[in-house]
Amino acid sequence: MSNFTEEQIKRYSRHIILPEVGGKGQKKIMETKVLIIGAGGLGSPIGLYLAAAGIGRIGIIDGDVVDLSNLQRQVFHHTADLNKPKVESAREKMEAINPDLEVTTYNDRLSAKNIMTLFSEYDIIADGTDNFPTKFLVNDAAIFANKPLVHGGILRFDGQAMTIIPHQSTCYRCIFHNPPPQGLVPSCQEAGVLGVVAGVIGTIQATEVLKLAVGKGRLLTDRLLTYNALRSKFREVKLHKNPKCQVCGEKPTIKELIDYEQPVCAI
């Protein structure tokens, strides 16, 4: 405990008092570097809770600006932030919660070109995208870089979350194989989403990140947790690593990152 300041001991006292976390666990949290993909519905609760929890360094990537229709669920952003780059708005809120935190922003899109360099600077990846080409790119890059990835997804009243430990547990591609054809799976924009579902799923993702950082608990691996807000129901679908998986199976056919054709940006 000797390395904590007085202020830190007080700030993190409710963590430190937990036997499973303690001073040692809090130190680990403070030494962990997390990359959040997307400063939207999922990225917001992930970033806010991880900033509060004392994660040492958070990187956040998003190339968009704040739109009025985002505010119903993307709690990073306030009305005064309209038209501001989302990563800037996110940085301000996270730094306001915790001045110890080091935030790195990337006002950019992820691509096969920049993703491996980006991943190399972080310990854990948290996925908050609404873009299937990117979800597959993130999954494959996590497998190649051997970085734990926490997946989350939301649509209408439903959400899902899963943690991926590369080469050990079921990956996103083990389940979903390939991105769906463009336009077939509706986005939040087209189909709607109850804003709070992003809070439920993003908070579960943040929990997984903290468990990974501290090294305690049973991770959400080989299980897809699904949530339905209308029925107030959680379900767990048990999964197995797919031996035929194209990226982490016995005979992987994907050996390089793929930039799938991006959907036309609907501004």
Binding site: I37, G38, A39, G40, G41, L42, G43, S44, I61, D62, G63, D64, D67, N70, R73, Q74, K86, R109, L110, D127, G128, T129, D130, N131, F132, T134, K135, G152, G153, I154, L155, D158, G159, Q160, V185, S187, C188, Q189, V193, A198, Q262, P263, V264, C265, A266
Partner: peptide, 10 residues
Amino acid sequence: MGGGVAEGAI
């Protein structure tokens, strides 16, 4: 299931 970010933003 996607996320909460507009398609094409990332």
